[in-house]
Amino acid sequence: MFRGWFDCNYCLICHDRIESTLSWVDLFVPEQKEVVCYECLTKLERIEGVKCQICMRSFLKLDAYYQKGELCFDCYRWEEEPNYKGILTQNYSLYSYNQFLKELIAKYKYRGDYVLAKIFASEIEKKIKEMKPNYIIPIPLSEERIYERGFNQAEALILEAGFQSTNILTRIHSEKQSKKSRTDRIHLPQVFHTTAQVTGKVMIIDDIYTTGSTLRHAARVLKGIGANEIISITIARG
């Protein structure tokens, strides 16, 4: 029982020792182990201030031209499309996609450093408990990609947060999203496929929210199989 107290704790990001902040309370109430040191934590930037009510895009450095009332111009345009109106009611992104997070996510997903998912676990857990979805569904990878990486980075976020992942979506189209224009993305033939049924509130998990098209395509499929309301969580808002 005493062992845990003296085990060294190392930051998952910089590998430095984490200075323990052991207090008397901790002796009686075992605190959750810290996984990131203070310096690294300060480099993760929360999205503060006025932001888009759907996607959390910050309005702070955004030209007024790209703001439409409570929405950003992108979400406003999605809401104009009959097929996509109201399809995604709320996205929650943990942090803004700064250089530090960019490198962190790249290491997590491209190098396959699975344990980095633990960095976001407690925040995601908190948010899931608050939003209370019936299902938590990860954005799927193509078969080829998942074999290459060994795990699905979105699913890992759900599992590490301590929830069950409902893997009912499959990817039928694996072309890289980033190379397409906006019009292409909207009118893309459906990339996701499912044979399951769902009801009620459904949450989708992905690593980065960039244009919102991946999440909205997945949401559309889920709506078609019975979902009432679709929300999402991502680590980063690009």
Binding site: C8, Y10, H15, G112, D113, Y114, V115, I146, Y147, R149, G150, F151, N152, A156, L159
Partner: peptide, 18 residues
């Protein structure tokens, strides 16, 4: 030991260390 991680590996279907 703190430089090793563990994950449910899709390739071998087991808990893999890395």
């Amino acid at each position: 030991s703190h430089f090793f991680g563990e994950f449910p590996c899709v390739r071998c279907g087991q808990k893999c260390h890395y």
